[in-house]
Design a protein around this nucleic acid. Sequence first.
DNA 1: AAGCGCTGTCGAAGCGCTTCACCGATTCTC
DNA 2: GAGAATCGGTGAAGCGCTTCGACAGCGCTT
Lengths: 360, 360
Amino acid sequence: MVTLAEVAQHAGVSASTVSYVLSGKRSISASTRKRVEHSIQQLGYHPNAGARALASSRSNIIALMVPLRTDMYVPVMMEIAIAVATTARTHGYDVLLLTGEEGPAAVRRIAGSSLADAMILMDVELHDERLPLLRESGRTAVLIGLPADTTGLTCVDLDFEATGALCVEHLAELGHREIAVIGEAPAVYERHTGFAERTVDGIRAKARRSGARILHRPCEGGYAAMGTTLSRIFDERPGTTGFIVQNEAAVEPLLNLLRQQGRAVPEDVSVVAICPEQVATGASVRLTSVAIPAQEMGRRSVEQVVAKLAGRDTEEVELLAPELTVRESTGPAPAAGPTDGRGRPTGSATYGGTGRHPMG
Amino acid sequence: MVTLAEVAQHAGVSASTVSYVLSGKRSISASTRKRVEHSIQQLGYHPNAGARALASSRSNIIALMVPLRTDMYVPVMMEIAIAVATTARTHGYDVLLLTGEEGPAAVRRIAGSSLADAMILMDVELHDERLPLLRESGRTAVLIGLPADTTGLTCVDLDFEATGALCVEHLAELGHREIAVIGEAPAVYERHTGFAERTVDGIRAKARRSGARILHRPCEGGYAAMGTTLSRIFDERPGTTGFIVQNEAAVEPLLNLLRQQGRAVPEDVSVVAICPEQVATGASVRLTSVAIPAQEMGRRSVEQVVAKLAGRDTEEVELLAPELTVRESTGPAPAAGPTDGRGRPTGSATYGGTGRHPMG
DNA sequence: AAGCGCTGTCGAAGCGCTTCACCGATTCTC
DNA sequence: GAGAATCGGTGAAGCGCTTCGACAGCGCTT
């Protein structure tokens, strides 16, 4: 491995000069800079990360803690992780991938060893165990998500309350009055992962103002759970015409089951999803949805980290404004006409006949 | 931050003794060990990563290069990444997340800076640009995937040839003679990502021996592409009764479109998927599938890395044996009876009537 | 009793870099 | 034209750790 000293010798300057050329922390004459840069090129020099970290107490590494639960909202997590990694690189940082496995201990370890200059935490719970440790460690940190107490912490998240409100608003404008909310798996609520609850809060608040009735049901993904949930919903509220889904794994099952029951989307029921764009556009009906801006969240969290490390101060909480894209899963609420007694419109809507699909 | 020296002083020993307690590289009397460990606890000492890396030329970091294309086989990638991270931790390593963005330059950078002790590369192409750099860097590396030339490299991968063969074998045993293969997106083949081609090789070889006819069609995911592909397939080979799908994004569209066309799965057509378990069990028909053992691949690759770093030598290429799980998407080929002239069996199979779904 | 090999501990060197203090040579300022 | 400020460069002191060689003390053997 080539060292700084060798570069210095090759260029006929002192080691410190080379260092200053590299860091730009002092002005260097054009001629020596050229010579040094040339030597660097020629020798194929790369600064040693460990030495640099030791001397400067900066590792240029950002630690990213992803949740352990590899089965939940995976694509979102992945997208965020990739966005974090690529954004970090543009600022000269590398990303260390920590899984939730180690739990709060990871915070202590990373902070204690100075392995990373900062941490980004995903999947933050309302009363997250990691937060006290984080605060006392004094390491700079940014959360993706919104805990109950944000003092001293910077947070980036989608504004889920506004998201919920936006969904209701859209459905209400289309005349829907009975709205069912298919939520995340019960476990998500039990863990008090803020976003799910905030969404429902936003939904309820807006519904009150719009005069819509809300029925909220957490739901595991998959067909079995969705089937049960769906029939309970229609038993309890036969007049349901609007759905808001916040659970990727429930989207396709919901659509297929509605179809199977002879309910056409969007003629009989409208569906709004809160999910990544890819899920919305790839579903069997192109879904009207509020996108989860995973990339943006990853990018912004890194930018916050970089700003904090640079000593600039930053907003405490940055909520990204939701955007609703209208696609083919929502339409006017059906006129309350004759039903077959189970709350389903008579006749007409049979599978394959409505041709909502791009394939026709 | 507490330093080694402080711990030494607190315990009344020299710094080197503390170091040896930590590393276990020299024998230490039980009594001093106790004292030192106690001091470490009490002071809350964590070794400084940079200093350690500098002094020992070991960073205890493994770099993981994930592909840039965040839209392809995402869940698999994520699962591998998580498995790599957690397995690495059990061996005392952390994981650095590199995206494909930087390309081959990342290899040079990481190797040059000694940031990582080893690298794990995912999404390896047949003639991957990174490999020459990797070889000349002399850094230990493990590939997840199988390039054309494996000399000097350790590779871990699912045995995709055997996987392909296994799928054909299963279908052939059920009496299917006309088999269509829905492959990955054309781009995957153009990039010569070995696994896709190896699968097809395995399929063809086995088909020759089983007397089955193969029609292979790469296919983008989604309904539009799948629709086109599907109608071309039935135009060309109306007698097709078996499908092998190797494209997560095509699975659900395929099932929905078949259903829409009145072809019941598995009564009229059988479908075997090559995909993660989760996709197979979460689809609208529980799919007979060969699982992509993402976790296992991640785990094994780390274990190979650790073995190499420890100086043990390892196999060059480790191919994991595929396992086929029979679920509800395959059944006996339909008896070649009267058809409606488009290769589709007359009557009977209409949507909703077959009740293949758990929800009934 | 001298010599041997162990074991447990220590001191010191140094890993490769950053950064501070210092210094000569210019250039500015009044 | 004297003093101050600036520029471009150097030397040396660490950053906190690992590791090598030295060595004291011990129990063996001969």
